[in-house]
């Protein structure tokens, strides 16, 4: 119980610090906005107010964490998983990391190296499906088949039916 409270306070401290940092970065940038004589408020006014308020709010969260008065989390379940819900375990974090790397790799392949969309998508979908389904020999075969079919369906629907330019 105490550990959980400590973890939450640490999380709030990190969150508050990150918000203060983002607010400060934007506030610093507002100093570089050119002034125009005909505009009463100027282009910097609103961003300056918003960034300042954000810093104050970030400090409030940070102080709450440091003084042991943790602000409460959102209790609205937006996506079916309560924000701040206990993690299913370290393995799932590793899975999320692997999926993120795979997705970035796929984006680089089709967007930067301009590899063939159909082929890249088939490989991505097969690898991601294999990873998420937990592995195994049968899963590998299923992943290859499903990846190829899904990539074919996406290409067919978006390029040929909807006429969308694919990366």
């Amino acid at each position: 119980m105490e550990d959980e409270r400590g973890a939450r306070r640490r999380r709030d401290a990190v969150f508050g610090t990150a918000i203060v940092a983002v607010g400060a970065a934007f506030l610093h940038q507002t100093g570089r906005i050119r002034k125009t004589p005909f505009d009463i408020l100027g282009a910097a006014y609103f961003p300056r107010v918003v960034a300042s308020v954000l810093i104050v709010l970030g400090v409030l969260v940070l102080l709450g964490a440091l003084l042991g008065r943790r602000t409460r989390d959102s209790d609205i379940v937006m996506f079916g998983v309560a924000p701040g819900a206990p993690d299913a375990g370290g393995a799932r974090w590793a899975l999320a990391g692997a999926m993120s790397i795979l997705t970035i790799g796929y984006t680089v392949a089709i967007g930067v190296h301009r590899l063939d969309f159909l082929l890249s998508s088939a490989v991505y979908l097969a690898l991601a499906g294999f990873l998420l389904s937990g592995g195994g020999r049968r899963a590998a075969l299923r992943a290859v088949v499903a990846g190829t079919m899904l990539a074919g369906a996406i290409t067919l629907i978006f390029r040929h039916v909807l006429g969308v330019d694919l990366p």
Binding site: V22, V50, V53, L54, G58, T71, R72, D73, D75
Partner: peptide
């Protein structure tokens, strides 16, 4: 959510992210 502070942080952060670019008025 139960925390107004965090709700406001989310709202102000969203506002902040819409600023970059050319200001329409000036």
């Amino acid at each position: 959510g139960r925390s107004v502070v965090k709700g406001l942080i989310s709202g102000f952060l969203g506002m902040l992210m819409s600023f970059p670019g050319i200001d329409e008025s000036s």
